[in-house]
C-alpha cells in the first residue's frame, strides 16, 4: 500500500533528494522544509529557493528500538534532530554509527527511506552520517 499520495511524493523530491528549502532575502533566514511565506517579514518577505549544503551537527537524538511500520527491520537505529549549518533543524536517521553524541558533525547522504511494498514505489531521501 502506498505510504503517501504519489503527487505529494513527487512534489517533495527536490526537498528529499537534495535538501532544497527556501531563504528570505529580506531577513536572511533559511527555511527547511520550504516556506512560501516568511513568517517574520510577512508581505515584505522575499522568498527564494535555496539548496542546503547538507553539513550540520547533531542537535539531539534518540535510539529507536521499536520502529514504525516499514522501519521494523532497521532497528535499532538512531534518529536525530540535525541542525544544518545554515540554521534550520530537521529530523533524520543517522547511518553507519551505533553511538553518537550531541554536537557531532554530520553530512547528508542519499539513501533509501522506505519501500511501499514488494511491488510499490521506493522512496529515497536524506539521511546523515558522521564526518
Amino acid at each position: 500500500m502506498p505510504s503517501e499520495n504519489l503527487a505529494i511524493t513527487w512534489r517533495r523530491i527536490p526537498e528529499r533528494y537534495r535538501l532544497v528549502g527556501t531563504f528570505c532575502r529580506n531577513c536572511q533566514t533559511s527555511y527547511f522544509p520550504a516556506r512560501k511565506l516568511c513568517p517574520k517579514c510577512r508581505r515584505k518577505g522575499k522568498i527564494e529557493q535555496k539548496q542546503f549544503s547538507g553539513r550540520g551537527k547533531i542537535y539531539s537524538f534518540t535510539e529507536v528500538t521499536a520502529g514504525p511500520s516499514g522501519f521494523e527491520k532497521q532497528t535499532p537505529y538512531i534518529l536525530a534532530i540535525v541542525e544544518l549549518e545554515e540554521g534550520p533543524k530537521l529530523t533524520a536517521q543517522i547511518v553507519g554509527a551505533r553511538k553518537v553524541k550531541i554536537g557531532d558533525a554530520v553530512e547528508a547522504v542519499f539513501r533509501k527511506i522506505i519501500e511501499d511494498s514488494e511491488e510499490g514505489l521506493i522512496h529515497y531521501g536524506y539521511k546523515f552520517r558522521l564526518v
Binding site: Q74, V95, V109, F110, R111, K112, I113, I122, Y124, K127
Partner: peptide, 16 residues
C-alpha cells in the same frame, strides 16, 4: 551494501 543502499544510492554518491 547497507540495508538502505542500492545501485541508485551508490550511483548518486559517486556522481556527487
Amino acid at each position: 551494501p547497507d540495508i538502505d543502499e542500492d545501485a541508485a544510492t551508490l550511483a548518486v554518491e559517486a556522481a556527487r
